[in-house]
């Protein structure tokens, strides 16, 4: 069985390290917030201007002045800090955030990411995605391996307009995990296969070229 949303998020949570500052995108990446391993300290950044995101508030304790980048009400924590959007993106662009986990529409084998627009359709805007992929030290993308028509979203080259060029370090799909050498020329390497999924199935459903990591067959 391919991984479901929670299992993909759990695999992404495996990329967290003690002491990391982390920015989570909307969708499956948000689920990672509840999967921080016991005993590990991870500080979550909200790009609208908060470091140290707390849990959602209890009913009756909502504060309209305290929201995350997805416009949901949240809480702060002891040790949290508030700042302007300029300072927030200084943290992001300046390489101070260790890890960002984002959703994607397409990823290429050299680490290009497309996740903000489809030509001919209404564009919502890129929000902070372009800054995150340009500035955060390590970028993990979590997305379904194929689109609704069954076409591979992991490609030799992206067909959609890019969010960033050569920015993705790791791709986690419902079928497996790929490491991408975005700064070098080693391309993509399949590191893990979801339980019950075969290498043949991944090969059949992947348009990108990839090598096999140790022990993958």
């Amino acid at each position: 069985m391919p991984w479901n949303r929670d299992e993909m998020a759990a695999r992404a949570a495996g990329e967290l390290r003690d002491g990391y500052y982390v920015n989570l995108g909307i969708g499956i990446p948000t689920l990672v917030a509840n999967m921080v391993p016991e005993g590990m300290t991870v500080t979550l950044q909200s790009e609208n201007g908060l470091l140290g995101i707390g849990p959602f508030p209890y009913e009756g304790e909502l504060d309209p002045d305290l929201i995350n980048a997805g416009k949901q009400t949240i809480t702060d924590l002891p040790g949290s800090s508030y700042f302007s959007s300029a300072d927030s993106f200084g943290m992001i662009r300046g390489g101070h955030v260790h890890l960002s986990i984002l959703g994607g529409m397409e990823v290429s084998q050299n680490g290009d990411l497309a996740n903000w627009m489809v030509p001919g359709k209404m564009i919502k805007g890129m929000g902070g995605a372009m800054d995150l992929v340009a500035g955060v030290r390590r970028i993990v993308v979590v997305m379904d391996h194929c689109d609704k028509t069954g076409d591979s979203k992991f490609k030799s080259e992206c067909t959609l307009p890019l969010t960033g060029k050569g920015v993705v370090d790791m791709l986690i799909t419902d079928l497996g995990v790929f490491e991408i050498d975005r700064r070098g020329d080693s391309g993509a390497t399949l590191l893990e296969i979801a339980p019950g999924v075969s290498l043949d199935e991944i090969r059949a459903k992947t348009q990108a070229e990839f090598a096999l990591g140790p022990g993958v067959r």
């Binding site: 993106f89 662009r93 800054d131």
Partner: peptide, 27 residues
């Protein structure tokens, strides 16, 4: 890009007519 917009306003207010950012290169 959100960070570019924030920085464009910060720069404008600080008398800086232009700046270079990694954000958006290749897009």
């Amino acid at each position: 890009p959100q960070g570019t917009l924030a920085e464009r306003l910060r720069a404008g207010g600080a008398g800086i007519p232009a700046f270079f950012t990694r954000t958006g290169y290749g897009t």
